Simulated scan of single mutants.
Amino acid sequence: MMMQNHAVIILASGLSQRLGQTKQLLKKEGEPLICYMTQLALATQPQVIVMVTPQGNLSIDTAIKGMIDQQDNVHRITNPTPDIGMAHSLYLGVEALNHLDSNDSLSINRVLIMGIDQILLDKEHLQALLVASQRVVASRYSSLNNWSDEQTSDRTVAHNTVKKDIVGLPLVIDYELLNQWQALLTGDKGLRHLIRGLPADQISSVINPQLSYDIDTPYQLAHARAQRWLDIVESK
């Protein structure tokens, strides 16, 4: 059980251009990925969830309609310009959260921010982020480039597969601090460079190597399905 009042912002407005299909609608355990990740967020018992999706995607709208209708604390906003960067989606998410907070008199002190394509994310990791007490508690994992079997078959690619550690999403941040930083969220300039400026005693991280596996390319998708990390789509 969570010991603090928190909200969740789910960043799900990416256009999946490298993947070539709508990432939000990939299936995991029979559910669209966006719904699966929202269920993980709900398991942390947040006061409210703000889901940011791309404007004008009717397939995503249809996929999430039932969940929004059934869950009073799940709200969806749309990003009309998802191509300008994730930071703008977060800006819109914070704006929507502030609007809900002012209208519904919520008692939010922390915000969990997460995406939808770290396909091995689980509830236990989210809980570990939420129980820490620093102003920012981020996830730490290795940056893997071209991690699928097909891509790493090339020796040069394989040699460069493991990169530096990433400190990033999902993360938990003090609500007041997030509001202070909102105006600085533009384009691709997200939270990472702002977090680096905090004193060391205000930041902590939770290590989870499984978060290295996100889905950006068709090769990664094929590998994830072969590993049964995502559902296999049968040919019609």
Results as ranks from 00 to 15, higher is better:
126 L>I: 09
56 G>Y: 12
233 V>I: 14
212 S>T: 02
44 T>G: 11
208 N>S: 09
132 A>R: 08
10 I>E: 15
226 A>S: 10
39 Q>M: 07
60 I>S: 01
160 N>W: 11
144 L>H: 06
10 I>N: 06
39 Q>D: 15
52 V>L: 10
184 L>M: 10
108 I>K: 00
166 I>D: 10
151 Q>D: 03
165 D>G: 11
198 L>N: 08
126 L>V: 13
223 H>N: 15
174 D>A: 09
189 K>V: 11
70 Q>F: 08
197 G>S: 05
70 Q>M: 11
214 D>V: 03
222 A>S: 14
228 R>P: 06
31 E>G: 07
150 E>G: 05
58 L>G: 00
153 S>H: 11
82 P>E: 06
171 L>R: 02
230 L>K: 07
65 K>W: 00
118 Q>T: 07
87 A>N: 12
98 N>R: 04
107 S>Y: 01
168 G>M: 04
210 Q>L: 01
175 Y>V: 15
217 T>L: 05
155 R>H: 09
122 D>H: 13
204 S>F: 00
95 E>N: 05
204 S>E: 07
194 L>F: 08
35 C>K: 07
225 R>C: 13
124 E>K: 14
16 S>R: 07
38 T>M: 07
191 L>E: 04
76 R>P: 00
9 I>W: 03
164 K>E: 14
22 T>V: 12
124 E>I: 15
94 V>K: 00
210 Q>I: 00
133 S>R: 13
209 P>C: 10
227 Q>P: 05
167 V>W: 00
59 S>Y: 05
60 I>Y: 00
19 L>V: 05
180 Q>Y: 01
200 A>S: 07
148 S>H: 06
223 H>M: 10
84 I>R: 01
184 L>A: 05
118 Q>G: 07
78 T>V: 10
180 Q>L: 04
11 L>K: 06
